[in-house]
């Protein structure tokens, strides 16, 4: 194993210390540039394009294994699943028929009252390429990007509920920040009461903060998007309240929630269109007295 232990007569290149200094300087510059100013988008796009074939290659054997698995499923299983799906489809189509009538009615009413009709754009199906193995960032990479006209800010859902939001679009892939990521906020309401709140991700989970003690929240309440941010369509299920703690000493009740969507298990996801353009907010009157700390907008990076 000591085949490298030959005496070195010649030193090649700069000393390791110098190299370390240069490299550390470069990486700190990159860190600051990336986290504070977002300068590295171009470079990242390029690199992701280079890595894309690698991702495909790596995914191939897995796909093949899955394919063979599909091939060798028992007929009973297939039959079973088929029956299940058939019943489900029947249920769904009944619901859909009702929904369509209701939607038409709603649009007519909206037209009567001259409110802009909601857009109905087809969602795009995408496949999860891989989840970043970095435990700090709750992000997944999907296999559609600028080639499918995705845009940062589009909501992403799976069969159960809201998954997250597209935050970065690369030529062939896109990065979805999950709702459980730190700094990710979703404007929501409690489906039962319509009370509005903001759902905060804290890195590994979601919670509702700043809801007063007297707010009507119960365990098992489902939480849906409120749609007032002009980003998420209203009514997408997001989470379920799992615990409500009312501490008399605190100003707000402590509400723990669980995300509905298989936030880190899903394979296929749907990318929805953003809600239509909302007119800009009327300008706020200038308050000359003191600096107010503005709340961050919901579409944080």
């Amino acid at each position: 194993m000591d085949f490298a232990n030959t005496p070195s007569f010649f030193r090649s290149g700069p000393k390791p210390g110098t190299r370390l200094f240069l490299c550390a300087l470069a990486s700190i510059a990159l860190l600051v540039g990336d986290s504070r100013y977002g300068l590295m988008e171009q470079a990242r796009d390029g690199m992701s394009l280079v890595l894309y074939p690698l991702q495909r290659v790596v995914n191939m054997p897995l796909g093949m294994v899955r394919h063979f698995g599909d091939y060798f499923t028992a007929q009973a299983d297939l039959k079973n699943e088929n029956d299940q799906l058939r019943t489900r489809q029947l249920e769904m189509s009944a619901r859909l028929a009702r929904l369509e009538t209701v939607e038409r009615e709603l649009n007519e009413l909206r037209q009567l009252n001259s409110i802009k009709a909601t857009r109905t754009d087809a969602p795009q199906l995408a496949e999860t390429l891989y989840t970043g193995r970095d435990p700090f960032s709750y992000k997944i990479i999907i296999d559609k990007g600028a080639d499918a006209n995705l845009q940062p800010g589009q909501p992403v859902v799976d069969a159960h509920g809201l998954l997250g939001q597209i935050t970065r679009v690369q030529p062939l892939t896109a990065e979805v920040t999950l709702i459980i990521d730190k700094n990710q906020m979703v404007p929501v309401m409690i489906a039962r009461t319509g009370e509005r709140a903001i759902l905060y991700g804290y890195g590994g989970g979601v919670e509702i903060r700043y809801l007063p003690l007297h707010a009507d929240v119960r365990e098992g309440d489902s939480i849906v998007t409120s749609g007032i941010d002009g980003l998420y369509q209203e009514g997408t299920p997001v989470a379920r309240v799992s615990k409500v703690e009312r501490n008399a000493g605190a100003a707000f009740s402590r509400i723990t929630t669980e995300p509905l969507a298989g936030v880190q298990q899903t394979r296929y996801v749907l990318v929805l269109q953003q809600k239509g353009q909302t007119p800009p907010r009327p300008a706020e009157p200038v308050v000359p007295v003191k600096k107010t700390k503005g709340k961050k907008p919901a579409d944080s990076e």
Partner: peptide
């Protein structure tokens, strides 16, 4: 890039 982390984080640690 591969882990979709922050650019420079692994680079600094590895160096």
């Amino acid at each position: 890039i591969a882990t979709a982390g922050m650019l420079g984080q692994h680079a600094l640690a590895y160096s």
